[in-house]
């Protein structure tokens, strides 16, 4: 309960600031309209008007809330205007990409920790891959794959995997190298094979590191999917909602889609966190 008061205070402050910004940013349009019609407007009329414009520069919180409500509950989940529909399209590609990226990250990490050659050859490329802006890479991947006849979920999942493999790779390399000299020496006294060392020591030691990176990875995966939905003029997915909103100046739609994406990211991170808790508890690593 102690947590509730500060959280609500910060939330209230943000909403208050947001409303202030709404009035400030949207009033210009109201004044322009009034001037064009040759009318005088009082400040209170301006305030009321800025809250309810159809295409505001910055939609008011209640407009976004209503847009979200309409998007989620206002229509059938299968409707093209439903945020649930678009959210699911994005989510499915995100999860596919996350699975791909996690698998790739773990495999590369295992290779890197067991082979000096891979350590030297793969790691620089992995780092370099993340320095290229995803916005530059995504359209090329989409276009190349489309020319090969691959469209739909897979190209988006690949972009998502491209972003999410890296934190998993870095975290797992650190995790697999976490056992200290003494623990490795102990296994040496048992004449344990590399395989036994991996399964019995390295892999369990890496679990806390893995979950920390999975949280970063799943959020990155969502970002990758949304970015991948932008360039191809996709009609489905939260990214497509953002894009069509910006085409038609539907700022409320953009903000609703943004909040839906943020909520989705939060849910994904929380779910990974819950799996982490359960796994580590089962392993006896949480007291």
């Amino acid at each position: 309960m102690k947590m509730v008061a500060p959280v609500l205070t910060v939330l209230a402050a943000i909403i208050l600031l947001w409303y202030g910004a709404t009035v400030w940013l949207n009033s210009q349009w109201t004044y322009d309209q009034a001037a064009r019609a040759g009318q005088e407007v009082s400040f209170s009329e301006v305030v009321v008007d800025t809250m309810n414009q159809k295409r505001p520069v910055l939609p008011a919180p209640h407009q976004v809330a209503e847009g979200l409500w309409q998007g989620v509950f206002g229509q059938k989940f299968t409707s093209k205007r439903s945020l649930v529909f678009h959210g699911w399209i994005t989510l499915s590609a995100t999860l596919a990409g996350f699975a791909l990226g996690t698998g790739l990250g773990i495999l590369l990490a295992v290779g890197i920790t067991h082979s000096r050659a891979m350590d030297l050859s793969v790691m620089p490329w992995a780092i370099a891959s993340q320095t290229i802006p995803i916005l530059a890479i995504a359209p090329m991947v989409i276009v190349v794959l489309a020319s090969l006849g691959i469209t739909g979920l897979l190209p988006k999942a690949i972009i998502a995997a491209y972003l999410s493999f890296f934190p998993v790779l870095v975290g797992m390399v650190k995790g697999l190298r976490a056992p200290d000299h003494m623990q490795l020496d102990l296994l040496k006294t048992y004449n344990a094979s590399q395989g036994a060392t991996f399964w019995k020591l390295r892999l369990p030691s890496s679990m806390p590191y893995l979950f920390a990176s999975l949280k970063v990875g799943v959020a990155a995966s969502l970002v990758g999917t949304i970015v991948a939905e932008l360039p191809a003029g996709a009609t489905r997915g939260l990214g497509a909602r953002l894009l069509s909103g910006s085409y038609y100046g539907q700022t409320v739609q953009i903000w609703s889609a943004l909040f839906a994406a943020a909520a989705l990211a939060a849910i994904l991170v929380v779910v990974v966190g819950i799996i982490e808790q359960i796994t580590l508890k089962r392993m006896g690593m949480v007291r």
């Binding site: 003494m182 004449n191 020591l201 369990p204 006896g284 690593m285």
Partner: peptide
Amino acid sequence: RKARSYGYVFQAAGLYPWRT
């Protein structure tokens, strides 16, 4: 060592926290 002729006890117990 390969014949597993000895048991070795280190200064720290070094038990695996994820094992009973």
